[in-house]
Computed example of a mutant assay.
Amino acid sequence: MVSLLPRAPCLASLPKPATAASFSLWRPAMSSLSATAHAPVAVGAATGQPRKLPVLLFDVMDTIVRDPFYHHIPDFFQFRIPLMSMKELLESKHPTAWSEFEMGLIDENELAKKFFNDGRSFDLEGLKECMVSAYEYIDGVEEILCCLKQNNYEMHAFTNYPVWYQLVENKLKLSKYLSWTFCSCLTGKRKPSPDFYLQAVDHLNVDPASCIFIDDRMANIEAALSVGMVGLHFKNAEVLRKDLCSLGVELAPCVHEDEAQVQ
């Protein structure tokens, strides 16, 4: 049974409504936060060097970076294909082309051919430019990533995204904070498949309960719970900061590189 923990020290017996003010930590009933998420270090089997736990696994779109799909992409197609609403876009696009692209099963040229069910062509380079122009950090999240990095936490992207993740990296430089280790186009697996999560645990060589998984979609959180990870349902940066602190994750004030140079 999965329980929802409030910010108060005591456990609630019933889940609270998923509002921006409610606590968003979910965990497997059998996991022990005091024994895992609060543990300061562990020894990495591969290197023999101290390893700070927990390991943090971040979804990217709508958790770290604003996803342009629901706002900018419809406008892009409406400008080029008049009167195409969001509903019409969803109905006319190929049902599996994007997920195939995310898993690396097709390249962007094949995506362009399959994107619409009727095979109509569109400006692929224009679409990419539209997406790049829209990529931006969600308010407050980069500050949290900076704090986590300066406190020596190990962080990895755990995301369903195609090779265009490189466009995100080129613009926002996420690799300053985390590794693009678990990207669906590199692994051939997508959330919420439990195999994806198990692959990550195996690669990291850690106990699942030593991983905190952060995502804006509950289906992906539930999959993480099923393999024994701790899950945080992302709502906004303020809630995320409070949730991480409640787990004992260190979030000392972030000192930016330019500030450090002045000092």
Rank of each mutant, 00 (worst) to 15 (best):
L14V: 13
Q166P: 06
S179Y: 08
Y137H: 06
D207W: 09
C147K: 00
S226H: 08
E110Y: 10
V55L: 12
I73F: 10
E169N: 10
A134M: 07
R217N: 14
C130V: 07
H38C: 08
L251T: 03
K191L: 02
A18C: 09
I214Q: 03
V2I: 13
P192I: 04
P54V: 00
K87H: 15
A46Q: 11
T187C: 08
G119K: 05
S24E: 06
N205G: 09
S34V: 06
P17V: 10
H256E: 07
E88R: 14
I144C: 04
E250M: 12
L105E: 11
R66D: 15
E91W: 09
S175E: 09
W98K: 14
C245K: 14
D207F: 06
R241H: 11
F234H: 11
K87F: 13
V201P: 06
Y153W: 08
R120Y: 04
F182A: 05
A97F: 07
F196D: 01
A18R: 13
S133P: 07
M218Q: 12
L244T: 00
E257L: 10
H72Y: 14
A39P: 00
G44D: 10
V132P: 06
A157N: 01
S31Q: 04
S175V: 02
F58A: 04
P40G: 01
A29Q: 10
R241Q: 10
P162C: 12
A224E: 04
G119L: 04
M30H: 11
A252Q: 14
C254R: 01
N236F: 05
S184G: 05
L57G: 09
E143F: 01
V65W: 03
K171R: 13
T19Y: 02
M155G: 00
A45Y: 03
D139Y: 05
C130F: 06
K191R: 08
Q166D: 12
A252K: 06
S193D: 15
H72E: 15
D202Q: 15
P68G: 08
L33Q: 03
Q49V: 09
S34P: 07
K149W: 01
D75H: 14
A224P: 06
V206Y: 08
A35Y: 07
W180K: 14
P40Q: 06
T159H: 13
E257S: 14
F69A: 14
E142K: 12
K52S: 06
P74Y: 02
D59I: 04
A252F: 07
L89H: 03
S85R: 13
K52L: 00
G231F: 02
N160R: 08
S32I: 04
Y153N: 02
I221Q: 01
V227E: 04
E169Y: 07
D243E: 14
P194K: 00
